[in-house]
């Protein structure tokens, strides 16, 4: 992905297929609860996030990640760690 694209925009783009009702997305959006994605759907979405940013987000971390803002922080931290 282009490094110019803010992480939150890319995450919202990846959530597109999981958001058929077109709910407005923000950092506060609770991904499983508000988008009504089941547990397996969340894990599939996280795999797309991992591949897009070329980072590792273990399942243990996913369990503690609820909102888009939470996920943005995880992604940014892991990009920094990868580049360190």
């Amino acid at each position: 992905m282009s490094t110019d694209t803010p992480v939150i925009d890319e995450i919202c783009r990846l959530l597109g297929p999981h958001n058929p009702k077109g709910i407005a997305l923000s950092a506060e959006t609770d991904i499983p609860a508000e988008l009504n994605i089941d547990s397996v759907g969340v894990l599939d979405f996280i795999m797309d996030v991992e591949d897009t940013f070329d980072i590792e987000i273990p399942m243990n971390v996913v369990a503690e990640t609820h909102t888009i803002g939470d996920l943005v922080k995880v992604v940014e931290d892991r990009i920094k760690k990868r580049n360190a």
Binding site: L43, E56, M59, N60
Partner: peptide, 27 residues
Amino acid sequence: CTLSGAKLVRFRHNDASDLDRRLSRSE
């Protein structure tokens, strides 16, 4: 896996090249 307390990495079903990437990526 959950009971183990290990770090858990999920790879795409039956996709060895995906596991290859995740093994390479794993810290």
